[in-house]
């Protein structure tokens, strides 16, 4: 390695370190606060490791002050249901847009692109009114149904399916598969990397979603983790930061684990190199 490239590489890594430190800092503060007793949190000196460890207290408080397990369970039910239904809709739709010839295909794809531009906050009020009229507010359905059709998912899978050779689809037709069998038996296995990428996006977005659950549900038996965390803020004893941060850490942990598990496939899926 020449000196010049060593210097640029050092600079590059330094810059990257700086950026990652910047984004990791809040997490570090969160974890650090979650193991401090209350008096140390409000002391004026910054300390990463507490003098008196309050790990057990804070975490047991987090689990006992609010039904955290219930919120985590709700989070899992809602994100899994959303992802499952999104795949159920997006794969056939993407297959049709990528591989079938029908009148209006381009218009349909145009609508998909158009819908990508609409932030869901913009349609939250109409959705709320709609759910009110069908009487589904304050239920799992209210949390799941608005997200079952993911135009982003349709778009992502359509782009991926464009790269699947037409011959493979024709071979499946000759072998006697119906169009739906082709979607589930040929396209789905080929699309695992892209699906993983989409899954990470979808699960992260809906696990962390605060806005819609706040609008859609009011009884705390349907609270998702982010809503649950807020229970600590509103607790009658003022802001209880230790247990609050402990709860936040618990809530983030499953996402981190999921991402680490899916990391390789996720990058493959984004890079669209899953097909030979």
């Amino acid at each position: 390695m020449t000196t010049g490239s060593f210097v640029t590489s050092t600079l590059r890594h330094f810059a990257l370190l700086l950026i990652s430190a910047f984004s990791l800092l809040p997490f570090a503060v969160m974890v650090s606060t979650s193991i401090k007793p209350a008096d140390e949190i409000f002391s004026d000196s910054v300390r990463w490791w507490p003098e008196k460890l309050a790990l057990v207290e804070n975490y047991s408080e987090a689990f006992s002050a609010a039904p955290l397990m219930l919120y985590l369970m709700n989070g899992i039910i809602v994100t899994v249901a959303i992802f499952f239904l999104q795949v159920l809709v997006a794969l056939p739709a993407a297959y049709a847009l990528a591989k079938l010839r029908f009148v209006g295909r381009r218009v349909a794809f145009g609508f998909v692109l158009f819908c990508l531009l609409i932030p869901y906050h913009a349609i939250a009020v109409p959705l709320f009114i709609l759910l009110y009229f069908v009487g589904l507010l304050d239920s799992y359905s209210a949390l799941v149904l608005p997200f079952t059709i993911s135009v982003f998912g349709i778009f992502l899978m359509r782009q991926f399916f464009m790269g699947v050779p037409d011959d493979l689809v024709d071979a499946a037709r000759m072998d006697g598969m119906s169009e739906l069998s082709i979607v589930w038996r040929v396209m789905l296995p080929a699309a695992i990397p892209a699906l993983t990428a989409f899954g990470v996006f979808s699960v992260v977005a809906h696990w962390n979603d605060y806005f819609w659950p706040l609008v859609a549900v009011s009884s705390d038996s349907y609270f998702t983790p982010p809503l649950g965390v807020m229970a600590f803020r509103n607790a009658e004893a003022g802001n209880n930061f230790g247990p609050l941060m402990a709860a936040a850490t618990i809530i983030v942990a499953p996402l981190l684990a999921l991402f680490l598990l899916a990391q390789r496939r996720f990058i493959e899926g984004i890079a669209f190199t899953g097909i030979k």
Partner: peptide
């Protein structure tokens, strides 16, 4: 008739084997 009902078999240039 649909392809599956024609009782024909086809071999493709790219072989079109199911990769999984």
């Amino acid at each position: 008739l649909r392809p599956r009902d024609r009782d024909l078999a086809m071999v493709f240039q790219s072989y079109a084997l199911y990769p999984h």
